[in-house]
Structure formats: C-alpha cells, structure tokens
C-alpha cells in the first residue's frame, strides 16, 4: 500500500539564525519509502524543497543562515513516497522567532574557593553556547543553575540572570556537589541542562 501520512514533529532554532525541522514517518506500507520536505514562505508563491537533509541527521531538514529569514512564516509539509503512491503530512506554520531554543551553556566549571578567614564557597562559571551571538545583542541569554549533593535527593535551583558565574556559600565539608546550568533567550525556550560538573569540598570543619 502507499505510505501513511508522515507527521512534522517540530522545528527549533538554536540561535535565531538557522533552524531545523523534524518529522516522524508514518507506516511505510512495507516498501522502500523516501521523504521530501517542502516549504513556502509567506511572502512568496514559490515552493522549495528542503535544502539540506544531512546536517541535522535522520528525518530532518536543516536551514542554514542564508535560507533562514525571521518574521516570515514558513509553511512546511513532508511528503512520503513509495512505489505505490505518496502521502503528505499536515502543514505546519513556523516563524523562526517563536521556536528559539539554545544549546546548553558550555565549559561549566565549579571550583572551591577558600580564604584564610572565611568558610569556603563554591564558584560556578560557564560560557554561552558557542553559536549564540549574545555580543551584538541579537539574543540576550539568562541562566539558571542547579546544585545537588551527590548523595542527596533534591536539586536546589538558582536564577543567575545574565551573569555567567554564581557563588554558592556554606557548602558541606567533605561532600561532593553536582552542578548544572541551562540558559533561556529573551523570548524562547530553556535549553537542556548542561552535563553534570562535579566538585569536591575539602574537609574544613
């Protein structure tokens, strides 16, 4: 039989300059099936095919910065085709400004600072995701940090605003802490949490 209807599962832009859309195949009717993504921009009647099926992996289409406009709706469909026929997904309308979700912050480190007089504290630092241009103001990122004792059960969350570092005072002597950071653009979605960074507090009591 002809292939079942594929489903566009979503589109995301990590930096407001490029974007990727993903789809799920429908039933393939037991035959080799190929997929094509088509799009039409709201300010034009021309229908284009996906410019790059490879960069973002299986069942995806990547739009590089020359193929990405913002404040313009993309009307997107995916067509599945096998030897017996084809079927088209429901269309999805996308404006890139409403699908911004950055990658995780990078180089997250946490170290223990000790002064002679005071108790030690943890200093966590991180960098914005590499591809996001916060420098020109094209995106403004805010950060959130979470901390947990390695043998504890609950994460403690801290909002860091636009800062790229955060102090955690009075860590427990001799314990290991886990630290993660995520970021959110001024208008868009939170990133995933960064990989866990571990920090060991020396025995100080």
């Amino acid at each position: 039989s002809p292939p079942g209807k594929p489903k566009l599962t979503g589109c995301r832009s990590p930096e407001k300059e490029t974007f990727t859309c993903w789809w799920e195949p429908g039933p393939d009717g037991g035959l080799p099936t190929s997929y094509s993504l088509y799009y039409r921009k709201d300010n034009s009647d021309t229908v284009y095919e996906c410019p790059d099926y490879h960069t973002a992996g299986k069942n995806s289409c990547f739009f590089n910065k020359y193929e990405t406009s913002i404040w313009v709706n993309y009307n997107i469909t995916v067509m599945a085709t096998n030897a017996l026929g084809s079927s088209v997904s429901d269309p999805v309308d996308v404006d890139v400004v409403y699908i911004v979700q950055p990658h995780t912050p990078e180089n997250v480190t946490a170290v223990v600072y000790t002064d002679d007089d005071d108790d030690p504290f943890l200093l966590a630092r991180w960098e914005p995701p590499r591809k996001v241009d916060t420098h020109s103001g094209w995106i403004t990122l805010v950060y959130e940090l979470r901390v947990k004792l390695e043998k504890g059960d609950t994460w403690e969350e801290h909002f860091a605003g636009q800062q790229k570092q955060f102090n955690i005072f009075s860590p427990r002597s001799g314990e290991v802490y886990m630290v993660q950071v995520r970021c959110k653009p001024d208008h868009g979605f939170w990133s995933e949490w960064s990989p866990i960074s571990y920090v060991k507090v020396p025995d100080y009591i």
Partner: peptide, 26 residues
C-alpha cells in the same frame, strides 16, 4: 506580537552597539 518582537530585537541591537564595553550585557 510579531511587530513587538521586531521592535524589541532592534532596540536590543542598539543597546549593545551603544556600549561596546559591557560584557555582562552583550
């Protein structure tokens, strides 16, 4: 909604252009 996003984006570009030395902002 779309126009206010444009307004916001352009103003934030202006904000960063005005201050070259403000690493905590831009």
């Amino acid at each position: 909604r779309r126009d206010s996003h444009k307004i916001d984006s352009f103003l934030k570009l202006l904000r960063c252009r005005a201050v070259k030395q403000r690493p905590e902002m831009c």
